[in-house]
């Protein structure tokens, strides 16, 4: 296809099209955006690796320094970093596992089975999705107090263990990607609901599980307001709350606080980079199927 100015930049025709100048222009603009996206991380690294005095100086120092390890040591000394990291991992993993299990199970049922009141029940599910979380912030706290779960990680994992979004999303996926023929073949072999779920649905669900899993994991990891409210035990916090406390308690030690921020950002970025390709592809798929 020749360099064709009237070809719109967009939708499917863009491969190799456009003049060399417009291609370079696109790349430049995109790189600019990447710079903006990633710059705060670079800045975080710079601030975490210099001293507080250097942070306050004007003009500001623009390159990383040599104090990173020292600042990180201070962080560990001042807050229970590894403890809260561990708690965050436990919450994120356990929560994700529960969500994946309950959501896929329910989605499988909704997508591939007929039972009385199925439409009504699913409708209720959709409606529940509309309820904003903040409405239940206060009463949920009271409920946790009544259950004796306040200050415990249970409060972070169990209430959110099945969420409407996950079920809705996986049901779409199941309807589109779970062939009835396989299920019927399984039924002929004598498999019941749960065996079908285990042996047919789950393997086919894998990409959706991967996406939902990463999505949920990230959400749980970064959750702030609910842990802030319900983790009343100062010795059992998640990373986000511990970091916020560090910021409040030592807010003039900018370098140390920044090191703490860096330390809490890295684990999730690493996890994300590992699963990125999967995640991004399925994010796109999910969005268009909505």
């Amino acid at each position: 296809m020749a360099a064709d100015r009237t070809t719109p930049v967009g939708a499917g025709l863009a491969i190799g099209s456009g003049s060399r100048r417009s291609r370079v222009g696109v790349r430049v603009l995109l790189l600019l955006g990447v710079l903006v996206s990633l710059f705060p991380f670079y800045w975080l690294v710079v601030m975490a690796s210099i001293t507080t005095q250097e942070i306050l100086q004007f003009p500001p120092r623009l390159v990383p320094g040599t104090h990173l390890l020292e600042n990180m040591r201070e962080v560990i000394h001042r807050i229970d970093f590894f403890g809260s990291l561990f708690n965050t991992v436990v919450v994120s993993v356990a929560g994700t596992v529960l969500v994946l299990f309950f959501d896929s199970l329910a989605a499988f049922a909704f997508a591939k089975y007929e039972f009385p009141a199925r439409k009504l029940l699913f409708g209720i599910l959709l409606a529940t999705y509309m309820i904003p979380g903040q409405l239940s912030l206060v009463p949920q706290f009271v409920t946790m107090a009544d259950f004796g779960w306040a200050g415990s990680l249970k409060a972070l994992v169990i209430p959110g263990a099945a969420n409407a979004f996950g079920i809705f999303w996986m049901r779409q996926y199941a309807q589109n990607s779970l062939p009835d023929e396989l299920l019927d073949a399984g039924r002929i072999d004598g498999a019941g609901f749960f065996r079908l779920y285990r042996q047919v649905a789950l393997p086919l669900f894998r990409p959706a599980l991967a996406f939902l899993g990463i999505f949920t994991f990230i959400q749980l990891w970064n959750d702030y307001i609910w842990p802030l409210v319900v983790l009343v035990n100062p010795d059992r916090l998640t990373l986000q709350v511990a970091l916020a406390n560090l910021n409040v308690a030592y807010n003039t030690d900018y370098a140390v606080v920044m090191a703490g921020a860096l330390m809490s950002v890295i684990p999730l970025i690493v996890v994300f980079l590992i699963g990125a390709r999967h995640f991004l592809r399925d994010l796109a798929a999910g969005a268009t199927k909505m």
């Binding site: 921020a261 809490s264 991004l280």
Partner: peptide, 20 residues
């Protein structure tokens, strides 16, 4: 590119608010 653009969405809001 997609990864680079998406990463901000993945990071801890608390940490990045401190940075900003």
């Amino acid at each position: 590119y997609r990864v680079a653009y998406f990463i901000p969405n993945v990071t801890s809001m608390v940490a990045m608010t401190i940075v900003f």
